[in-house]
C-alpha cells in the first residue's frame, strides 16, 4: 500500500464520519416531527379528495365514450359527490386555512351546476345527456349546432 492510497483512505474515513455524525451532534432543528403529523392528516384527506375527483372524471369519461348507462352514471355520480362533500367537511375541520376549502367547495358546486345544466339537454338522436356547450353528441356523433 503506498502513501497516497493511505491518505485517500484516511480522508475518506474522516469525511464519512463527519458527514454521518453531523446531524447527531447538531440536533437543533429537529422539531419537524410534530408538524409533519398534522400535515400528514390533511395530506391524506386531500389525497382522498383527489382520488374521488379522478373517479368522477373517469365516470364522466366512461359515460361520454359510451361505456356507462345514463341511469348508472347519475346514480354513481350522486353517490361519489356525497362522499366528496363528506371529505371536504372533514378537511374543513382539520385545516386551519379555510380559504383553501372555499376553493374546493366552489369546485364541487361547479361540478353540481354543470351536472344540472348538462342534464337539461339531451341528444335529439340517441337521448344521451349532453353538456350545455356540446357541439357534437359524444355518443352518436350527431351534430348539435352548426360549427362556428
Amino acid at each position: 500500500m503506498n502513501t497516497a492510497d493511505i491518505v485517500v483512505i484516511v480522508v475518506m474515513a474522516i469525511g464519512l464520519v463527519a458527514w454521518i455524525g453531523e446531524p447527531v451532534v447538531r440536533r437543533g432543528r429537529m422539531q419537524e416531527a410534530a408538524a409533519d403529523a398534522h400535515d400528514d392528516a390533511i395530506e391524506r384527506l386531500i389525497l382522498q379528495k383527489e382520488t374521488l375527483y379522478t373517479a368522477i372524471r373517469d365516470l364522466d369519461f366512461d359515460h361520454q365514450t359510451g361505456k356507462v348507462d345514463a341511469e348508472d352514471h347519475v346514480a354513481l355520480r350522486r353517490q361519489m359527490e356525497a362522499e366528496a362533500a363528506d371529505i371536504l367537511r372533514q378537511l374543513d375541520l382539520a385545516d386551519p386555512l379555510a380559504d383553501l376549502d372555499l376553493v374546493a367547495e366552489r369546485e364541487i358546486l361547479a361540478y353540481r351546476r354543470k351536472e344540472d345544466a348538462a342534464s337539461e339537454d339531451t341528444c335529439p338522436t340517441c337521448g344521451t345527456d349532453l353538456a350545455a356547450d356540446a357541439t357534437y353528441c359524444p355518443i352518436c356523433g350527431q351534430l348539435l349546432k352548426p360549427a362556428v
Binding site: 373517479a55 373517469d58 365516470l59 366512461d62 359510451g66 361505456k67 356507462v68 348507462d69 348508472d72 354513481l76
Partner: peptide, 9 residues
C-alpha cells in the same frame, strides 16, 4: 367501464 358496466353498452 369502471365500477359497473352495462351489458348493452
Amino acid at each position: 367501464a369502471w365500477r359497473r358496466g352495462s351489458v348493452r353498452n
